[in-house]
Write a protein that binds this DNA or RNA. Structure first.
Lengths: 329, 329
DNA sequence: TTGTAAGCGTTATCAG
DNA sequence: CTGATAACGCTTACAA
């Protein structure tokens, strides 16, 4: 690896001049510029980013924290962040936190020591005070962390309402809900949306809501509970697609036909819901856009501090597929 | 952020002494050590990794190149690499290459400028000569790049044989194969395994092999072709689970019952094959172990060059589920 | 328009 | 056992 000094020597100029041409800043005579560029080419010189980072305290790296990339919701999000990071010249670092606060703190610390330029968090475990005196920009994605922190989310409550209203519109009379963990803001909002629609129904009891953990297995267990306690349920809204797939499995095990006897609806519009039989009716989130936007906002904050960034809330929409069907009456 | 100089000042010692304490190397009096540690705690000092990297030319970062993290095969692999990297104190960088050689080269260049310590490649597009004078360790994973390069793979040919022999054992008489792209070493080996078993069958023609692109859609299209050209096919071995899911979809569209009329078998044992109806019979790869081992070998090469690393080949095993069933006769 | 030199925060060498 | 000090490779005053 050749250094700026090698280039300077070969071009018969000082390192300052080389630096000027590399960064296209400051005056430099067209002729010497040619000489320098020639030398750079000859030596196949590339500036050492570590030295640059040391000097200016910036690394051109951003990190994304997600609970677990093995959850099919996250790869597309990660992909979007990476693509945007890339196109703006940033290196992308992926951190799986397993919803473990200690891991988050450890990652945070380690990356700060590397002069990371910013963070995007998908987290329900980090506390606002743990990041309040971090002096690099942070954006919350998918889940809010605190009202003050810039975030990119969707209108979860409205999505849930759309889902439950749709179930009603096709004739469902008893609608259960499998919600996500209580500490996840999006789960709370989806539960809220469910309640908005059914709270005045006389059949509603706490037995119609079960908590799942966003996994297929969790959805299966919750659905079993739900269906056994309330045999008259004819519609289930699960807070994400994975749990909805679990509902499908539970129904299969119990010999309940979907959608003839039970309509099922998920949330997210991720891949698993497209390979089941029947395919899942769900609420679509613009996942790629969310990731892209979050990265964009982060980079804007990095490059233009105090440029007044606003949080973003995307709309969601119902996608009807085979797991829901108007009931015969 | 305080520096080593602040610590030195507060503890009334030189920066050299502080450095010795931090790195636990060289002699330092127990008493002064206490003083220094005290000062470190008081200032909440953390060494600047960028400065360290500049000095010793190492960054404690490793990168993983995969075609696309949205393919469900890769998240588990990535997870394994990250976990191992973490446990050894390395930062993990994920790069999606889209099988695009230019992207690979660009990433390579960019990361080398950041003093990256090593690479793990899942690639069928990079050429051996493009990496031959990279002076950091490289490990190939899942796919071989060149015979000389250390790799961690599975016995694809044997896995394919197991799959096809199993189909024969349950009575399949005409077995088609959907293979992956020809430039992918694992695809070639799986095709080879398929041929090992059926090459002497008199019914075998080139119509029994279709090329897919490892996606559901690609599998669907290939299966359509296969089933229309050879209506008597009663078994299909797809080179990965995603394409096998496509086969299931094709069968559904054509009104062919699986497994009664057609047995289907995939490869990888990934999540999508577990949510279909029927669930997919497949060949299990120890995905997490592969990733973990590759990372381990890479780090070993980084920390102990010339320690004589050998390539690793894992065994695979058949997992029987609902998409295959002994034929009535 | 160009060059000199200080400094970014560490580590390691070499005296003491 | 401890302290100066010269690197690591780059950028940016400041001078010329």
């Amino acid at each position: 690896m050749s250094t700026i000094r090698d280039v300077a020597k070969l071009a018969n100029v000082s390192v300052a001049t080389v630096s000027r041409v590399i960064n296209a800043n400051g005056y430099v005579n067209e002729n010497t510029k040619q000489k320098v560029e020639e030398a750079i080419k000859q030596l196949n010189y590339r500036p050492n980013d570590v030295a640059r980072s040391l000097f200016n305290g910036r690394s051109k790296m951003i990190a994304l924290f997600v609970p677990d990339i093995q959850n099919p919701f996250f790869p597309e999000l990660a992909r979007a962040v990476e693509d945007m990071a890339n196109s703006r010249g940033y290196t992308f670092i992926l951190c799986n936190t397993d919803n473990n606060n200690q891991k988050e703190i450890d990652y945070l610390q380690a990356l700060l020591q590397k002069s990371i330029d910013g963070f995007i968090f998908v987290s329900s475990t980090i506390k606002a005070e743990q990041i309040e005196n971090i002096n690099v920009p942070i954006v919350a994605m998918d889940r809010k962390i605190s009202p003050e922190l810039v975030s990119v989310t969707v209108d979860n409550r409205d999505g849930a309402r759309q889902a439950v209203e749709y179930l009603q519109s096709i004739g469902c009379k008893r609608i259960g809900h499998i919600c996500g963990p209580e500490n996840v803001s999006s789960s709370r909002n989806r539960l809220q949306g469910y309640l908005d629609v059914v709270k005045k129904e006389d059949w509603l009891t706490s037995d119609f809501v079960q908590v799942g953990d966003h996994s297929i297995q969790g959805g299966l267990v919750a659905a079993m509970e739900l269906l056994q306690k309330n045999p008259d349920i004819d519609g289930i809204f699960a807070a994400n697609d994975l749990m909805a797939v679990g509902v499908l499995k539970a129904a299969e095990q119990l010999g309940i036909r979907v959608p003839e006897q039970l309509s099922v609806i998920g949330f997210d519009n991720t891949e698993p819901g497209k390979v089941t039989t029947p395919q899942l009716t769900t609420i679509n989130q613009p996942i790629y856009d969310i990731g892209k936007r979050a990265a964009e906002l982060l980079i804007q904050q990095i490059e233009t501090p105090d440029s007044g960034i606003e949080s973003v809330i995307y709309n969601v929409e119902l996608i009807v597929r085979g797991s829901t069907k108007p009931l015969q009456s």
